[in-house]
């Protein structure tokens, strides 16, 4: 999983397709997605002829207004891309990557199984908790749906364990490099992350996170931040 940032950088900085790893952009749960951001399945995607018509590899649903989003699916340079016909509207979306059923006697679309399935994203500016885990060094790390602003996160983020508020110490915002997204596509704001110390003994297995009026209950495994990123980007 530590190879993810390097592979992200390779995918963005070279013309060579990277078939050693797979990941999706935007990440599952990402917010503040730009109006014209292209949905991408990077690496280990189907290697198919450039001009071969693609089956329904990607489907996007508009969860606020209902219905399927019209757009075009293309595949080249180790990526499958969904480009919407029109700018994303304000709201929530769900996109699904799937293995086509009908590929009889035609190029086979062997998509990495880790890439298959659904992921959500939003064009709203909300800050949400999309993943949380203990780092091996003992910090509690949280992935956020967009990069947080330095000022404000300390006041906005609260944590409770067994219903009791826990004081937070040393909140540190993870850098793009630490999140493996220092070379994202232009216009992709990426996700954010913070790590902090809890002022209690031991490692609770579950915690509830609050940002403003929203809350998220998360089971806490022991993971490196980059492994958490791999989870929300389906990295493999």
């Amino acid at each position: 999983m530590r190879a993810l940032p390097m592979l992200l950088a390779l995918a963005a900085c070279t013309d060579e397709p990277s078939f050693e790893a797979s990941f999706i952009t935007p990440a599952d749960g990402q917010t503040n997605v730009a109006p014209f951001q292209i949905l991408r399945v990077h690496g280990n995607a189907a290697k198919i002829p450039d001009d071969f018509p693609l089956p329904d590899l990607v489907e996007v649903l508009d969860l606020d207004r209902g219905g399927r989003v019209q757009g075009s699916v293309s595949s080249s340079d180790g990526q499958i891309r969904f480009t919407p016909d029109q700018a994303w509207l304000r709201g929530e979306y769900l996109w699904t990557v799937r293995q086509p059923l009908d590929d009889a006697r035609m190029p086979e679309f062997d998509i990495d199984p880790a890439m298959l399935g659904s992921a959500s994203f939003s064009t709203l500016d909300q800050l949400r908790v999309i993943h949380a885990a203990w780092s091996p060094s003992g910090s509690l790390c949280v992935l956020l749906s967009r990069p947080p602003r330095q000022q404000g996160i300390e006041e906005r983020l609260r944590v409770t364990v067994d219903g009791e508020p826990v004081p937070l110490r040393g909140i540190e915002i993870l850098t793009p490099v630490e999140l493996g997204q220092d070379a994202l596509d232009a216009g992709d704001n990426g996700i954010g992350g913070v790590c902090m110390e809890l002022s209690i003994g031991g490692r609770p297995e579950r915690a509830r996170f609050y940002i403003d009026d929203d809350s998220w209950l998360r089971d806490l495994e022991v993971l490196e931040p980059l492994d958490m990123v791999a989870d929300v980007r389906r990295g493999s």
């Binding site: 089956p55 009908d102 590929d103 009889a104 035609m106």
Partner: peptide, 9 residues
């Protein structure tokens, strides 16, 4: 003449 995902070609 053969099948492609979008029909025949």
């Amino acid at each position: 003449t053969y099948r492609v995902p979008t029909g025949r070609t």
